[in-house]
Simulated assay, not measured.
Amino acid sequence: MTDVQNDALIRDQNNFNKPTRFSAEEWQARVKLAGTYRVFAYMGWDEGIYNHISLRIPGTEYFLINPFGLHYSEVTASNLVKVDINGTLMGHSDWPINPAGFTFHGAIHAQVADGHCVMHVHTTPTLAVCCLEDGLSYSNFYSAQLYGKVAWHDFEGITVHADEGNRILASAGDKPVLMLKNHGPVIIGHTLAQAFSLMWLVNRACECQLATLSMGKPQSIAEDVLKRCVADSLNFDPRFGAGEDALAAFIRLVEKQDPSFKY
């Protein structure tokens, strides 16, 4: 094999060429979502084989979600599962989806016009704050950016019952962050990157709140300052990508460690 042929082979391997069964738009969504699952694993936001990120395939009524049984570090573009709004498998998959995975995700995708990405985690700091009687405290840099954007839903047990999906949706209202009491946060984003940025804010806000509570009483922030923080937050501003640059940076980071998510 010549050097030119070898270089071409390496380029092909690094490009992880799109399988013919996927459209260009679907494959792009698959690669980006698989990369985000790897970012969650890197951040320690994974929960074994549980929890979910669901994403609408652009221009369709179909969604991608993680295969049930695989750790986030094993998710790849090609093994993500494609489902319809009811969680019914579209095409072939070697893996099922978690029954709890699409109960409220599907309800949100079906009824929130721009709710194209839904994330749910059980990280220790976010779940701990969900268990606090007073909930999230708007007393730090991160939570200040979430003021007026958080709703709450009472704990009903494991989310495997379809009727709870509508109640979760009703609790969320027009808020992009829904804290499930005693359970964990749900993020509703226009895009994968915006949802990631919101999840970043929620996690950091909860981490800082727990650290503050371990030392004493949090200082309050004036409401007018909180409102300015929300207005000035780049995480919500489409002019600055609403998190696209931040997510891209993290995906580059995990790609350097293991690019297999692009398969």
Rank of each mutant, 00 (worst) to 15 (best):
P19C: 11
I158A: 09
P58I: 10
L70E: 10
A151E: 02
K32S: 12
I57K: 02
C208R: 07
F240P: 01
T123R: 06
I85G: 05
V81W: 09
Y138D: 00
I97P: 07
S171R: 12
L132I: 00
F141L: 07
H52D: 10
T159I: 08
E164H: 13
I251F: 04
S78F: 07
K175D: 02
E74V: 02
H183R: 06
W200I: 03
G87D: 10
F155V: 03
L146R: 00
T103S: 10
V39Q: 05
E133A: 09
T123N: 05
L198A: 12
A246H: 09
C206N: 14
P58D: 03
L201V: 01
I168G: 13
S220G: 08
D163V: 13
A170R: 15
R239F: 02
F102K: 03
H105E: 10
A29W: 04
F40G: 08
H120A: 10
V254E: 14
S73K: 11
L210Q: 14
M179K: 08
H52F: 14
G157P: 07
E26R: 08
L64K: 12
Q13H: 02
A246Q: 11
G59P: 04
V4M: 09
I65Y: 04
S143L: 02
Q111Y: 04
A151R: 07
N235F: 14
S73N: 06
V83N: 10
G148Y: 04
Y147T: 02
E74N: 13
A34W: 04
W27K: 04
R38T: 06
A162W: 00
E156Q: 15
S54D: 11
G87Y: 13
V83W: 01
F141C: 05
N98L: 01
A248I: 08
F104A: 12
I65W: 07
F22I: 01
F22K: 02
V83E: 05
M43D: 13
M43Q: 14
G157R: 07
C206S: 12
Q5P: 00
A107Q: 13
F22H: 12
C130M: 02
L146W: 01
Y37C: 03
T103V: 15
R228K: 06
N182R: 13
A41K: 07
H109D: 09
S54T: 15
V118W: 09
C229W: 00
T60K: 02
F141G: 00
A222H: 06
E133L: 02
L80A: 06
S139C: 11
H190A: 06
K175W: 08
A170G: 12
S23R: 06
L9E: 11
E255P: 03
V186I: 14
P99E: 13
T159L: 05
D237I: 03
N86A: 08
L180C: 07
H153M: 04
D94S: 15
A248M: 03
P176I: 00
S233F: 05
N66R: 12
V129N: 10
N140E: 09
C206T: 06
F104M: 14
I97C: 06
K149T: 02
N166I: 13
F250H: 09
L178A: 09
P58M: 10
P99L: 08
